[in-house]
Computed example of a mutant assay.
Amino acid sequence: MSKKILFILSEYGYWGEELLGPLVACDRQGYTAVFATPTGKRPVALPPSLDPGYVDPPLGRSVTTPEVAVAARELDESSRLDNPISLADWIPERPYDSAPNPLRAMEAYYREIATLAEDIAEYDALVIVGGSGPIVDLANNGRLHELILAFIRADKPVVGECYGVAALAFAREWDDRKSIIWGKHVTGHCKEYDYKDGTGFVGVEFNMGPPPYPLEYILRDATGPDGQFHGNVGKETSVIVDFPFITARSTPDSFLAGEKLVEVLENGLRRFGW
């Protein structure tokens, strides 16, 4: 039976290559790809990610080859992303403690959350696609956190790319609030790669300037004294496999991340990159 991979994309802009890389690897293996967004809105690629002439300010060079730009645009304009699953329709929202009859509300919430284990049985892995969009609607998305936790409990691999890795740092069991990447080795968008100005999002006329938080600092804290953040600054690629997590630093790591996901699923790879 074909393996099935669940891809999570932001509704505020994904980076073209960061979807294309893992998706190409999955397509090559004959895996079935299923897409989901926070509210079921069709995801759209960030315009700079489709432009081979766009020079990434921190790196001082183009990060998108003409070939990748064409392939990413074709994917973005195809029908594959037309009808994503809505996380809002699928996964309940944790009620406030101030809600009427909060104890009954929480009991109902946990009953619904318990069904996620059955819901994800058909999936073999989770991929959180990167870009600036995840800063807005994925990093602190409680529904996504519950989904990530369900995959971890099921011992299934979870891929995080670029700023999509933030969702892994913030996904925590409600009781102890301890990051699920505590004690793990991860990579992610390092401080050297952050924009000083120009962080933008699809559908929002707003220049945030730099990202609202430095992901590297969050990952360093979230992994704790027994884990480690690996920026690998100066190295062309940075992908870390510390099962069940597969983390990718940024755009140039997208295809390698896809390859490593296949190795995890097909060959039992458990460690790579450090």
Results as ranks from 00 to 15, higher is better:
1 M>H: 12
2 S>W: 00
3 K>W: 01
6 L>I: 00
9 L>P: 06
10 S>H: 05
12 Y>C: 03
16 G>N: 03
17 E>A: 14
17 E>Q: 14
21 G>T: 07
24 V>S: 07
27 D>F: 01
29 Q>H: 06
30 G>D: 04
32 T>Q: 15
33 A>I: 00
41 K>P: 00
41 K>S: 06
43 P>R: 05
48 P>H: 04
49 S>T: 11
51 D>C: 03
51 D>N: 15
53 G>H: 09
55 V>Y: 00
57 P>S: 13
57 P>E: 12
60 G>W: 08
60 G>M: 09
61 R>D: 05
63 V>E: 08
64 T>Y: 01
70 V>T: 13
75 L>D: 04
78 S>A: 07
79 S>D: 12
84 P>W: 03
86 S>Q: 06
88 A>Y: 12
91 I>Q: 01
95 P>N: 10
100 P>S: 11
100 P>D: 14
102 P>G: 09
105 A>Y: 02
106 M>N: 04
107 E>D: 10
108 A>R: 11
110 Y>F: 14
111 R>A: 13
112 E>Y: 02
112 E>H: 05
115 T>V: 11
117 A>M: 02
118 E>W: 01
118 E>Y: 04
121 A>H: 11
121 A>N: 10
123 Y>I: 04
123 Y>T: 03
125 A>K: 00
127 V>D: 00
128 I>P: 03
128 I>Y: 04
129 V>N: 02
137 D>W: 06
139 A>Q: 03
142 G>L: 06
143 R>W: 05
148 I>P: 03
148 I>C: 09
150 A>H: 01
152 I>Q: 11
153 R>G: 04
161 E>T: 12
166 A>C: 10
169 A>G: 13
171 A>V: 07
172 R>E: 15
174 W>F: 07
174 W>G: 02
179 S>I: 06
183 G>R: 11
184 K>W: 02
186 V>F: 13
186 V>R: 09
189 H>R: 12
189 H>I: 11
190 C>G: 08
191 K>W: 01
200 G>T: 11
202 V>Q: 08
204 V>I: 15
206 F>D: 08
208 M>K: 05
209 G>D: 02
209 G>V: 06
210 P>V: 10
214 P>C: 11
217 Y>K: 13
217 Y>C: 01
222 A>M: 13
226 D>P: 00
227 G>W: 12
231 G>C: 13
231 G>N: 06
231 G>A: 15
234 G>N: 08
236 E>M: 11
242 D>E: 06
245 F>T: 10
245 F>P: 05
247 T>V: 14
248 A>L: 13
249 R>I: 09
249 R>F: 08
260 K>Q: 15
260 K>N: 02
263 E>P: 01
263 E>R: 14
266 E>P: 09
269 L>E: 09
